[in-house]
């Protein structure tokens, strides 16, 4: 095992232990996030991590940054206020798939549309974990949850497609199986001057794995491996029940807080009202 930096400085020891079940993927994502912090040498005093409600959204408690644990689905709305009022802060939202794509779907598409300089991590485990394993807007068709015991007939959302269509300027997807890739994707997302979305497929052995007889956390990593393929190696037709991974968009477009700063400059010059 190679020795790396001591990442414990990025964790808030007072909040430990965390709430995640044995085998849950969210801890891996948090570990990757702390690596990204370390690589970027991020000023933790000037960083705010905003979560909604759900397993993933608990992450602000465990990070040694400023943390804001808000209401279900609304992380991006709160984060938009933080960032607009104080554009120098680094603002990172951590949401689950239900948080970001169901109850908070409206805020997600509008944050994409504004291209505001937020980093949005969506930890997608395909199920509602905190409330006990109900159907999520991401649960693949045919999969079971406590509210789809005969198999889901719903068509799941694809967060990447949604973000691309809504105007996000950095869009990537990976999995906790591909752990080593996550820090670099998050680093790029944090540095990206615009709305940056990284979806990370994460495993929920307690509900998703158990209800669908896919096994424990380790087995679910194999499921992640087998149900994903690099975007260039998979056709749209092959995407049913499967996911493409990679960086789907990275481009520079005028960012919202900078556009607002330009508007302030114009208002100051014109001085009306």
């Amino acid at each position: 095992m190679k020795s790396g930096p001591d990442l414990r400085q990025y964790l808030r020891q007072e909040s430990m232990p965390n709430v995640w079940c044995p085998g849950c993927g969210h801890g891996s994502v948090m570990a990757a996030l702390t690596r990204a912090f370390d690589n970027l040498q991020l000023d933790l005093d000037q960083t705010v991590v905003v979560g909604g409600i759900g397993c993933a959204s608990r992450m602000p408690f465990f990070l040694n940054t400023n943390g804001m644990h808000t209401t279900h689905g609304r992380a991006l709305a709160f984060a938009t206020g933080v960032k607009l009022a104080s554009p120098d802060l680094n603002v990172i939202t951590v949401m689950g798939d239900g948080d970001a794509l169901s109850i908070g779907g409206n805020h997600l598409i509008h944050a994409c549309r504004r291209n505001i300089d937020l980093t949005a991590l969506i930890l997608n485990n395909g199920i509602y974990g905190m409330t006990g394993g109900q159907l999520a807007p991401t649960t693949p068709q045919g999969f079971r949850s406590t509210t789809s015991s005969l198999g889901s007939i719903e068509v799941p959302f694809d967060a990447v497609d949604l973000a691309l269509a809504a105007g996000a300027t950095y869009v990537a997807r990976t999995t906790t199986f591909d752990f080593e890739e996550i820090p670099a994707l998050i680093e790029t997302a944090i540095k990206h001057p615009g709305f940056a979305l990284v979806e990370i497929l994460s495993q929920c052995p307690t509900y998703f794995g158990r209800l669908n007889r896919l096994g424990d956390g380790r087995a679910l990593l194999d499921y992640e491996r087998d149900s994903t393929a690099p975007q260039e190696e998979i056709t749209r037709e092959q995407l049913v029940g499967r996911f493409s991974v990679g960086v789907f968009r990275e481009e520079i477009r005028p960012e919202y807080t900078r556009r607002y700063a330009a508007l302030l400059e114009r208002a100051r010059r014109d001085g009306n009202a």
Partner: peptide
């Protein structure tokens, strides 16, 4: 909902 959310976020700065 977003409006009051943004207001609260801003207040915390």
């Amino acid at each position: 909902i977003a409006s009051i959310g943004a207001v609260i976020g801003a207040s915390w700065t």
